[in-house]
Design a protein around this nucleic acid. Sequence first.
RNA 1: UCCUCGAUAGCUCAAUGGUAGAGCACUCGGCUGUUAACCGAGUGGUUGCUGGUUCGAGCCCAGCUCGGGGAGCCA
Length: 463
Amino acid sequence: MLKTNIKEIYRETDRFMNQKIVVSGWVRTIRSSKAFGFIELNDGTFFKNLQIVFEDKLKNFQEIAKLNISSALTVEGTLVESPGSNQAFELKAEKIIIEGTSTPDYPLQKKRHTFEYLRTIAHLRPRTNTFSAVFRVRSLAAYAIHKFFQEKGFVYVHTPIITGSDAEGAGEMFRVTTLDLENPPRKEDGTIDFSKDFFGKETNLTVSGQLNVETYCMAFKNVYTFGPTFRAENSNTARHAAEFWMIEPEMAFADLRDNMDLAEEMLKYIINYVFENAPEEMDFFNKFIDKGLFERLENVANSSFEHVSYTEAIEILQNSKESFDYPVKWGLDLQTEHERYLTEKYFKKPVFVTDYPKDIKAFYMRLNDDEKTVAAMDLLVPGVGEIIGGSQREERYDRLEQRIKELNLNMQDYWWYLELRKYGGVKHSGFGLGFERAIMYLTGMSNIRDVIAFPRTAKNADF
RNA sequence: UCCUCGAUAGCUCAAUGGUAGAGCACUCGGCUGUUAACCGAGUGGUUGCUGGUUCGAGCCCAGCUCGGGGAGCCA
């Protein structure tokens, strides 16, 4: 008797055909008549189910026929060719052991549910086809990212989750404190005395590992972080979460062009890896979630990404016949409608927009020779929008110091960041990839809440 | 946070200001190859919350809560 899982049966069918096997899994649906019935069994190892045929010669036939959905079973039997048209093989049951029962009020029907409803049962939704596919792809994509960087010799750095500085002003932060909020210690002037707090200073959850990872970049040359990130923005969109995962590579001796090449190579690598390792899941997305998915991803995997400077992008937008709600003018940031036009209508593929005006970008980005723009890049992709944001970093001590002053940031907070420029500072570049946005792009899922297991968004931290 | 649409049975949705309905799920019965199985019968409701208008409110008005879509912030 061969104990196996359903993935193996699909992948190595010949090895199991006409053999006695044992599988354990959960009931997705039961169809029964007087003397026989069919069970769709899913054991979690594979997207597809295994059809079980059971007949009334089983001692517990009546009991099996009445099982509720999601009951857990161990089935012994022989794998045989199936006369049905929807599956090549099926398991003819000789013994069925009920491992765990379910009840009639099981909230998941055999019918389609809305994603909104499934969010209210986040503990059960991984049992649905869609979430089974999304979260297997998510796992594979995470592995592909590590594989990609490790194969290139990048060192994985775990940057801190709790931070003592407002790293880059990248957004509102979540406070970390052990102070009694009802009655916090106060200084003589009435303000809260954070020297009494756990760390002896104000601390928050990180909004980016970038500044920390740059320190390891100057020691290991090529590094990356991959971890949770927190933004306390009151964002109510399908693309924002308060807790999300971000990949941030950083390369020494690399300019903006090297940076973009890495981003492009990485995205293509992930796409190819997922296609190779989750073909059934990708098929499902293409059929039921986003009918243009294959075409789009194949287009991306097989073509070169576009490159356009911010200044050129402004000209393209100004010369277009589109009527935009927001003004297009050099110096103003691109609006979502502008980004969509560029990537979805004009280029119809991923496009890097580079060299933005310095006033709309972060302090650490390298000032270009024109003194007006910085070596920044955003990667825009059809359907999702901005998926990557990166830059070549300002490696010149005096320039960086000047930018910190100009923006009225506290120089003291950046002393160690500045010292990287003092002791063998070299040109270096990096970017941030929003992991959930990458998963949305890979699967065609349109809401970030449906590509992260337990989404944390404004007014929602259930489960 | 702003704009906009919405909230009715377990789920997905109907219902001119005048008796709250369907499909699916569920329960019972039938069915010897099903594929969201099929056929018959049955159970199931404080119409999101609070207040108002009206002889009468699921429907009209106000506020609130939550959700969808769009925008801002960004990844």
